[in-house]
Design a protein around this nucleic acid. Structure first.
Lengths: 162, 162
DNA sequence: AGGAAATAGATGTTGTAACACATATTGCAA
DNA sequence: TTGCAATATGTGTTACAACATCTATTTCCT
């Protein structure tokens, strides 16, 4: 449905204005779908992302810093997220031998099993592919990548701007 | 920059998979920009959205229910958001005469002044328009609107699905 | 070696989202 | 009219994001 109808009420001052609101709104919609799919497994989207990163490293451990770098939602609270996953038995943590400041975090077999059960949201992705073609997805990806190039302080370095 | 480089590490299993991640990532990027712009005015994005809705009603009041309906982030905690704005003097609240269950919430002149100062993020929108054409924005809007039509429980009614 | 600076992480705080549950009020039906 | 269901909102809880601050450890410099 058109965004104007879904949020009722407004006309947008420009297509870009609508695009900004559309990104915010579509994000909320997508997060709802994904969270709903995770609920039976009793983990949150943030915890799922941590597990995904850890699986990418497996069987090597990751440090908290590496998790922070790779997380989608910027730098957040990787320490406490890891702790909650540890309590659930999905990850294990140990102090590094070589640098006692570092924590080695590794996904457990049980954590790997949970990821397998979830199966990367294949059904949700498939449902979305019914509505939007590969070509359209590709184009949106290109445009969103361009959009972000206006420069986010802290992500973009001066040298990248030419 | 391409998403793969920004989040380092992965290849996506499909364009749609990348699109989903791209929406999550671009949302985070956009929220950072907007929050940064709001910081000098000492309000959060959620509070800003409430003020926008109230300005749309002005000089009529809105109820908490109406705010919940119009909020971008689904139904959340409109009561407590309004309370924080009230403490700041940006909104006022009164019990409805006709239905004492309802709260009449109205933006104050000071609240209107804050919105004027912020000016609808015009600079941010303009910066984004340097990177993405009106045509491209329009197309992304159409595609995102289609994407959401796969059906979000609670938003979509059976009668809308034909 | 000795100490400052940098690094890795933990911890505390505020504002929110998502959810369950409690309370007050209204409206409707028997 | 009485009583129950529906409505509108408030309150409590958990998990998070964003941010600041603190501690432990390592590295670097002299």
């Amino acid at each position: 449905m058109r965004l104007e109808n879904e949020i009722q009420q407004r006309k947008f001052s420009s297509e870009m204005h609508k695009l900004a609101v559309n990104i915010l709104y579509t994000h909320g919609w997508l997060v709802s779908l994904l969270s709903e799919a995770l609920k039976p497994h009793d983990i949150t989207l943030a915890q799922f992302n941590i597990l995904r990163i850890l699986r990418g490293q497996y069987p090597n451990p990751a440090t908290i810093s590496l998790l922070k770098e790779r997380m989608l939602d910027k730098m957040s609270d990787a320490s406490r997220l890891v702790e909650r996953l540890r309590v659930k038995g999905l990850v294990e943590r140990a102090v590094s031998d070589h640098d006692r400041r570092k924590a080695n975090v590794r996904i457990t077999p049980q954590g790997l099993r949970v990821l397998e059960e979830i199966g990367d949201f294949d059904e949700i992705i498939a449902a979305m592919e019914h509505r939007v073609s590969k070509q359209d997805s590709e184009q949106v990806n290109i445009i969103l990548d361009s959009l972000r190039d206006i420069g986010l302080p802290g992500v973009q370095s001066v040298s990248e701007r030419t």
